[in-house]
């Protein structure tokens, strides 16, 4: 390696990954239900998809992706909760990798919750 550009390329590639280790209250928290019920209904690919995309798009300085246990709605798993500072929590149900990618694009980046996947629209 010789140039500053190449150095910047390494930094950009690594920033998302090392950024996973930053701590900040201002982060948006994305929590995936990973209890037995969640894992059984396919939460792991949802979690890894969200985590990978956040790193690839260099969003680790704004968004933290983590797991949680069972919240008691096992029949609606996999569940993803999005907690943005100062905003009400949004709960998505029956997630899969594709839906998760859509939520990242439209909600986390675009700022508009994807109503059709939320718990509120499931008419419980």
């Amino acid at each position: 390696m010789k140039t500053l550009e190449e150095l910047r390329a390494i930094r950009d590639r690594m920033q998302g990954q090392v950024g996973l280790r930053s701590e900040d209250d201002t982060h948006t928290r994305v929590v995936v239900g990973m209890a037995t019920c969640g894992i059984a209904s396919g939460a792991r690919p949802v979690l890894t998809t969200l985590s990978d995309l956040v790193q690839q798009k260099h969003l680790t300085d704004k968004i933290t992706v983590t797991q949680t246990g069972c919240i008691g709605l096992c029949q609606y798993e996999p569940i993803v909760e999005v907690m943005e500072p100062g905003k009400p929590k949004v709960t998505y149900i029956k997630m899969n990798a594709e839906k998760a990618a859509e939520i990242l694009e439209r909600h986390l980046i675009g700022g508009h919750p994807v109503e059709k996947y939320t718990l509120a629209s499931a008419n419980l």
Partner: peptide, 21 residues
């Protein structure tokens, strides 16, 4: 306590060698 000191890419990832540049 944040980066792996044996991996130069991690140092660069936290802004390392930018000052030298």
């Amino acid at each position: 306590g944040v980066i792996n000191p044996e991996v130069i890419d991690e140092y660069i990832g936290t802004g390392g060698y930018q000052a030298l540049g």
